[in-house]
Each structure stands twice: as C-alpha cells, then as structure tokens.
Simulated scan of single mutants.
Amino acid sequence: MSNTRDNANARVVWRLIAVVVFMGAAAWAAVPFYRWFCQVTGFAGTTQIATQESDRVLDQTIRVRFDANVMPDLDWSFRPMQTEMTVRLGETAMAYYEAVNNSDQTLVGRSTYNVSPSDAGYFFEKIDCFCFTEQELAPGERIEMPLTFFVNPDMLDDRDAGRIRDITLSYTFFHMDTQKSARADTGASAATALN
C-alpha cells in the first residue's frame, strides 16, 4: 500500500515539474512567437517587409499620414518631413523623417512602428526603413532618414481593409537602454512567475 502511494506521489511530482518546465518554455517563446505572428498577419498594425517593388500599380489612391513620437528618456526631436502624401496603390513612394540629438552626449535609438487602422498593416509594405536598424546620433547631430514603401493593391480585395482610404504610419523612438531594461524586466517577471 505504501509503495503504491509513493508511486502515485512521484507521478504527481513529475507532472508538476513537467508543467513548470512547459510554462517556462512558453514564457520564453511568447515574445518571439508574438512578433512572428504580428509580422505574418499584420496583427495590431504591424507592417510587412518587401524585398522588391510591387509588380502592379492601380489608379486608385490612398492617403498616408505620418506621425512621430519620442519616449521621454531620449532627448531627441523627431518629426516627419511631410505630414501626408497621396499615393497610388502599388506605387513605390519615399518619405523622410528628421531626428535631432538635443543632448550633449551620443545617444542610440531604435524605433517601433505601427499602422492605423490596424487592418491596413498587412498591406503596408516597407522596402527600406530607418526602423530596420539602430540610429546613433552625436551631440547636436541632425539626420534625415528615408522610408521607402508601397501599399499593396491586394488591399482592395480584402473584406475589412478594402474600404480604407486613409492610413497613419506612426513611429516611436526609444533609447536603447530602455529597450534592454524592458526585456530584462519581462524576463525577470517571467522568472518570478515560475518561482
């Protein structure tokens, strides 16, 4: 009887260990999986990355508005050099953003982005963007950063996005130390949850 009870307790312990290991693996994989999911589906306004220009251009136009934000811990001025442009669906367009380092030290920033309305994210395709890499600015340095994009003409055939005629592309610049801290905090929160 005691041997049977010991075996049952051992199975329960092993199952609990398996659950903890599974939860740890799921927490570790959640961020990369979510990023991949957003890039594939355009979920939450995540834009797509194109390797080439569109193979067709339609006469129908769409207005693209540009927005810029900076987190408080990054002493930069950041703005679009044009507030909006009207482009034909499938037409490759280029827009510029300007960043100025207002501090007395070299700062490294990286931008995140999204598209609104979110249904348009899947159809907004970037060929080249300053958001693909970190930007380093010396004290007082000013740079113009290009963005090359097109809006995929397949958007017209989409049940939800087909009626959209205005898109807002929004960027937010973060100080790189802030991002590292956020990742560390996320990892620490996941580790705490497991303990």
Rank of each mutant, 00 (worst) to 15 (best):
N69S: 15
R165G: 11
T133M: 10
A44Y: 03
Q52F: 07
F174Q: 06
Y171M: 01
A191K: 15
E91K: 03
F37K: 07
T133R: 15
R163H: 13
T92V: 03
V19Y: 09
F124K: 00
I143F: 04
I143V: 15
L58G: 04
E141Q: 15
E98W: 10
A138H: 09
E91P: 01
F173I: 09
D104G: 10
K126N: 12
D104E: 11
A44R: 13
M155R: 05
G140M: 05
G109C: 05
V108M: 11
N9P: 03
S181K: 14
T186I: 04
G24R: 10
R11E: 12
E125N: 14
L169A: 04
T168K: 05
T92W: 00
R110K: 15
P153I: 03
L169H: 05
R110G: 10
F22M: 10
T106V: 11
A50T: 09
F43I: 03
E136D: 09
P72A: 11
T83P: 02
A99E: 00
D158S: 12
E144A: 15
T178F: 06
L89E: 00
I127K: 06
W76I: 04
E98F: 06
R142F: 06
L107R: 07
D6R: 15
R11P: 02
R163G: 13
V108S: 12
N101E: 04
A68R: 02
E125P: 00
V64T: 02
M94A: 10
D67T: 01
